[in-house]
Amino acid sequence: MGLAWQQGPLATKAVGQFLVAQPLPERLLFAESLRRRMRVRFGDQWVADSEDVVLLHEPGRYPVAFFPVADLAEGVLAAETRTTDHRDLGATAWFTVRAGQAQAKHAAWQFTDLPEHAAILRDRVAFAWRAMDAFYEEDERIVGHAADQYHRIDIRRTSRHLVVRDGAQVIAETHHPLALYESGFAPRWYVPREDIKPDALTSVEGQTFCPYKGFAGYYDIGEHKRAAWSYPQAWPEVAPVSDWVSFEPDLVDVYLDDRKLALEPGQTVVPHGIDRDLAPTH
């Protein structure tokens, strides 16, 4: 979860509520300085390099980075005849991005008639994430979307008793699971491989991608499809859960200290595609 997506406070299905007497507008947009150096790579060139990036948080969307026009490489933007109208921010001009022999249509945009209250976005350009080769903070690539400073993951060791059953069959049992707390989500419980019945999990084809944890592989349990998942090589920030397994409580029975868990409303993850040229070995 971030500030404006999934179940964040500015999202359309926020998990919490603002304690105010009068109802807030249906849509709240929030813009802020990133306060990090951010760069954009395309066609083997740096097309943008700035320490003055502004993030736009818009309900239901991942944060978008806006770069000052002055911090773009010369000649990388070619104006298109295409224009659109943003429901909150008005007229939008679109650009083809060109660098060396590479070019990408509809790959950047700029709001050209902003209301005064949105002046922070004036003379700034955003780049389509999938259209560019990569985005960086300093010399490290960032994946998925611009860094959301309101998203957090904490992993905690615990001695609680966790049991996973498929009917009468015990699939897993442990007294030392890991609790993964991720902003806006109910806790997820991860079990070490040695505490799982060896033949209980059937690996299936297909992966999903999380910008914060990495690539997840899935397992069937009996007749229950994709009832468990694991991050075989989780990102370093969440390394403790690497190759541990978590189970879907709506597909198999998961008990924590004898209390049966249930999938809480709003826990379905918004799908996220994999960045261009990002291999699972990244």
Rank of each mutant, 00 (worst) to 15 (best):
R35M: 06
F247Q: 09
A99S: 15
M38F: 04
A227T: 04
V40A: 11
A78P: 00
A21R: 15
D49I: 14
P177D: 09
G2A: 05
P23R: 13
R152N: 13
A118W: 15
V269F: 10
S203V: 13
D49G: 06
R160Q: 09
I196F: 03
D113P: 01
A227N: 11
K197H: 05
R152H: 14
T174G: 06
G60Q: 04
W94P: 06
E248G: 02
R122G: 03
W109G: 08
G60A: 07
H175E: 13
D71W: 00
E26M: 00
R130N: 14
F42W: 02
P25I: 02
R188F: 00
S50K: 04
E80R: 10
H117Q: 14
T12H: 09
T83Y: 10
W5C: 14
A93N: 11
R156L: 14
V163Y: 05
T112G: 10
R141G: 10
P249L: 13
S50P: 06
A279D: 10
M38D: 00
Y255E: 08
A73K: 11
E32R: 11
Y219S: 04
G100E: 00
P198F: 09
Y212E: 13
Y181N: 09
A4M: 06
D220K: 02
R193W: 03
P59F: 01
V170R: 09
E223C: 00
A108M: 09
A239K: 13
F66G: 00
D195M: 08
E264M: 12
Q207M: 15
A11R: 01
M132W: 02
H57E: 07
P25Q: 02
E182L: 06
A73I: 06
R36H: 07
A102C: 03
G167P: 11
S246A: 15
Q103W: 00
L28S: 05
K260W: 00
E138Q: 14
I120D: 08
L77W: 02
G144W: 15
T83N: 11
Q169K: 12
T208S: 15
P236E: 06
L29A: 07
L56H: 03
K260P: 07
A21F: 15
A227H: 09
Q169L: 13
R130W: 01
E58H: 11
E237A: 15
G222P: 11
Y212Q: 07
V238D: 07
G144S: 11
Q110T: 09
R61Q: 14
D44P: 01
F111D: 01
T202I: 07
H176G: 08
A228T: 08
E26I: 01
C210E: 06
P265W: 03
V204H: 01
